[in-house]
Amino acid sequence: IDAAQIVDEALEQGITLFVVNNRLQYETSRDSIPTELLNKWKQHKQELIDFLNQLD
């Protein structure tokens, strides 16, 4: 699994991931984030931050 897949998966569930001051953040209108997704974010945090920083 790679960062792009995780970002896409989040988007499919209505969650936008982004980076502020090198910290992973998210925006969503959902009430809660699925635990499975949160765990993936934690496991791949640095990859996600690097990936999202490249997009900007």
Rank of each mutant, 00 (worst) to 15 (best):
I1Q: 11
I1S: 11
I1T: 10
D2C: 15
A3R: 02
A3G: 04
A4H: 13
A4L: 06
A4G: 09
I6E: 02
I6C: 05
I6K: 01
V7I: 13
V7G: 01
V7K: 02
V7A: 03
D8I: 15
D8V: 13
D8A: 15
E9R: 04
E9I: 04
E9V: 02
A10T: 04
A10F: 06
A10W: 02
A10C: 05
A10D: 01
A10E: 00
A10M: 03
L11D: 05
E12V: 08
E12N: 11
E12G: 11
Q13K: 09
Q13I: 09
G14W: 05
G14R: 04
G14A: 04
I15A: 03
I15R: 01
I15N: 01
I15C: 05
T16Q: 09
T16N: 08
T16D: 06
L17V: 02
L17Y: 00
L17E: 01
L17H: 01
F18Q: 10
V19W: 03
V20G: 04
V20W: 10
V20Q: 11
N21S: 06
N21K: 06
N22P: 01
N22K: 05
R23W: 08
R23M: 15
L24M: 03
L24K: 00
Q25P: 00
Q25H: 15
Q25N: 09
Y26M: 06
E27G: 06
E27N: 11
E27A: 13
E27Q: 12
T28C: 05
T28A: 07
T28Y: 05
S29H: 09
S29F: 09
R30T: 06
R30A: 08
D31W: 04
D31R: 08
D31S: 11
S32I: 11
S32N: 11
S32Y: 12
S32Q: 10
S32V: 10
I33G: 01
I33N: 02
P34R: 03
P34I: 03
P34Q: 04
P34N: 04
P34G: 04
P34A: 05
P34M: 03
T35V: 14
T35W: 10
E36P: 06
E36L: 06
E36M: 07
L37T: 04
L37N: 01
L37H: 02
L38N: 03
L38R: 05
L38W: 06
L38A: 05
L38F: 07
L38C: 10
N39V: 11
N39Y: 09
N39P: 03
N39A: 14
N39W: 09
K40G: 02
K40M: 10
K40E: 04
W41I: 15
W41T: 03
K42D: 14
K42V: 11
K42W: 13
Q43R: 10
Q43C: 07
Q43I: 11
H44A: 07
H44V: 06
H44C: 06
K45R: 10
K45H: 13
K45W: 15
Q46W: 08
Q46L: 09
Q46M: 07
E47N: 07
E47V: 12
E47K: 09
E47G: 06
E47H: 07
L48E: 00
L48V: 06
L48H: 00
L48K: 00
L48C: 02
I49V: 08
I49A: 02
I49L: 06
I49S: 02
D50E: 11
D50M: 09
D50G: 06
D50N: 10
D50S: 09
F51L: 04
F51I: 03
F51K: 01
F51E: 01
F51D: 00
F51M: 03
L52G: 00
L52W: 02
N53R: 10
N53I: 13
N53H: 07
N53D: 05
Q54T: 12
Q54W: 11
L55F: 10
L55D: 07
L55M: 12
L55H: 10
L55S: 08
D56H: 13
D56I: 14
D56P: 13
D56G: 13
D56C: 12
D56V: 12
